[in-house]
Design a protein around this nucleic acid. Structure first.
Lengths: 248, 248
DNA sequence: GACTTTCAAATAATCGACAAAAATGAATTA
DNA sequence: TAATTCATTTTTGTCGATTATTTGAAAGTC
C-alpha cells in the first residue's frame, strides 16, 4: 500500500503525549514512595494503606503494591503477612548499628578506591564536589519544614549522593558500591529527620566535604578515612537527639 | 445470651485446615522462586514469564508478580520496564566482585564478632557446626544432578547458612549481618552452579569448616580470618571454571 | 540483498471486583 | 470496671479481564 509522496521520515516520531519517561506506573510509584520515605514525608512507623496511596499518587492498586514490595527489600518499608505494609521505623539502636556499619564498610571502599583510583577518578571527585557546592541542597525542605506535595528528589540531594558515590567509585567492586548506597539511603532518613526539627543546626558541613576532597587529592588515605568517619559520626549525633530509645 | 456450661476456653482453636503456615501466596511464591534461583533450577539469564510461573507454582499473576518484585531488590531477578523479569545472570566479573566484597566485609564481621563474642556465642558456633556435620547437605541434589520439582530448601543448606551466620552473629550490628547474608545468597548461586556440573569435586570442605571452628575456639582471630578468606577463594575457583567471560 | 515498514501474536502492565483476614467497637457478662 | 463475644467495617490479598507495549515474521522498497 503506497503511502503518499515522501513523508520525510518522522525523525523520532515525537511520541505524542509521553506520560512518563517511558517508565511504568509501578516504577514511578517506587521512586516517589522512596523519596517520600527517605525525606521523612511519610513518617517512620506509620501504616502504608494501599488505598490512601492510590489517591495520593493517582493510580490503581497494582502499581502501588508492586512498588511497596520493592521497598520492603530496600529496608524502607516493612511487611507483615495479612497485616500490610508500614514505613520502617527508626530507633537509636538501628542508627547505632547503621553508623558503625557505614564506618566499617566505607573505610574499606575508600581505601581501595584511593589505592586504585587514577587521575580520571580524582577529577570525578572534584567535579562531584563542585556540583555539590553549586546546588544549595535543602531545596525541598522549606524553612518552615513544609514540603509541597509532589516535589521530587531535589538536585541538591542527588548531588550529595553522587559525591559520596564518586569517592568510592574506583574501589573495583560494583557489589561494594551497591552496599554503600544501601547504607547511604538508610542514613539519609536520619539526616532528614534531624533537619526537619532543628533547622538552625544547619551545616558547617560544606567544610567537611571540602576536607574530604583535600585529603583525596593529597592522596592521604588515612586522613581521608578519618574525615569520612568523623562525617558519619556527626550525622549520627545530629539525628540521635531526635530519637527515643524505644523504636515504636 | 448465656452459653451452655463452662466451655473450657479453646486453648488455641486448632485452625481447621491451614493451607500454608498462615503466610500469603505471595510470600510462598517468593520463597520458592528464591530457592529455585539460588539452586540454579531456574537458569541464569533466562526470562521469567509470569504466566509460565503461574502454572508452575499453581497461583494467579498477582502473587507471582509481587514475589518477582521482591526478588529484584535481592539482586536475584532483574526487571526492565515493559520487558519483564529475568533471572539475574552470572559472570566472571560479577563473581570476582562478589568474592572480593565477601572477603572484605566478612573479615570485619568476623573480627568484631570474635572481639565481642562471649562463651554463649562460642557455643552457638560449635552447635551450628555440629548440625552442619550431621546434615549431609546436597540432600536436594541427587547424584545425577536431577532435582525433584517442589523440593524445598534442604536442611543441609539451611545448616550451612546458619553456620556462617553464627560466626558473625556477635559482631554487634544487625546491618552488617544482613549485608553478609545478601552476599551469602549471591555466592550460593555460584556454589550450586559449580556443584551441578562437577559433582565429583565434592567437598573436602567439611575440613575447612572444622578449621574455622578450631580457630574460633582458640580465639586466634588472624587465623580464623585467613581460613575464612581461603574458604571463599575456593568457592570462587570452583565456580570460575563454569563461566564464560561474557555475562549473557 | 540489505534495510524498512507493517501487521499480528505474545507478553507485560494495569484496572476493577471479589474473597479472606484483621481491626474496631458496641453489647453483654462476670 | 474489666474482660469477652459477636457483628460490623476496614483493609489486605487474590483473581480475571482489559489495555498497552514489545517481539518477530512477512511484505515491501531502494
Amino acid at each position: 500500500m503506497p503511502k503518499q509522496a515522501a513523508r520525510p521520515k518522522p525523525v523520532i516520531a515525537e511520541p505524542a503525549v509521553v506520560k512518563n519517561g517511558g517508565a511504568t506506573l509501578a516504577s514511578e510509584a517506587y521512586q516517589r514512595l522512596r523519596e517520600d520515605i527517605i525525606n521523612a514525608v511519610l513518617v517512620p512507623g506509620s501504616k502504608l494503606r494501599v488505598q490512601e496511596l492510590c489517591t495520593r499518587y493517582g493510580m490503581g492498586q497494582s502499581p502501588i503494591r508492586e512498588a511497596l514490595n520493592r521497598l520492603v527489600r530496600d529496608g524502607l518499608a516493612s511487611l507483615s503477612d495479612h497485616k500490610g505494609f508500614s514505613v520502617t521505623s527508626l530507633s537509636r539502636a538501628h542508627l547505632e548499628s547503621l553508623t558503625k556499619t557505614r564506618c566499617w564498610v566505607n573505610e574499606i571502599a575508600l581505601r581501595e578506591s584511593m589505592l586504585n583510583g587514577d587521575s580520571a577518578w580524582e577529577e570525578g571527585v572534584v567535579l562531584a564536589y563542585h556540583r555539590l557546592t553549586r546546588n544549595p541542597r535543602r531545596a525541598s525542605a522549606q524553612p518552615g519544614g513544609v514540603r509541597v506535595d509532589g516535589t521530587y528528589n531535589s538536585s541538591g540531594e542527588q548531588a550529595h549522593r553522587a559525591f559520596h558515590t564518586s569517592l568510592i567509585s574506583a574501589c573495583g567492586s560494583p557489589w561494594l558500591i551497591d552496599l554503600c548506597e544501601q547504607l547511604f539511603d538508610a542514613a539519609d532518613r536520619y539526616r532528614h529527620l534531624a533537619r526537619a526539627t532543628s533547622s538552625r543546626t544547619a551545616r558547617p558541613r560544606g567544610d567537611e566535604h571540602k576536607l574530604l576532597v583535600d585529603a583525596v587529592v593529597a592522596r592521604d588515605v588515612d586522613r581521608a578515612v578519618a574525615v569520612l568517619k568523623k562525617h558519619f559520626s556527626r550525622t549520627h549525633e545530629l539525628a540521635r537527639g531526635q530519637l527515643s530509645d524505644d523504636p515504636a
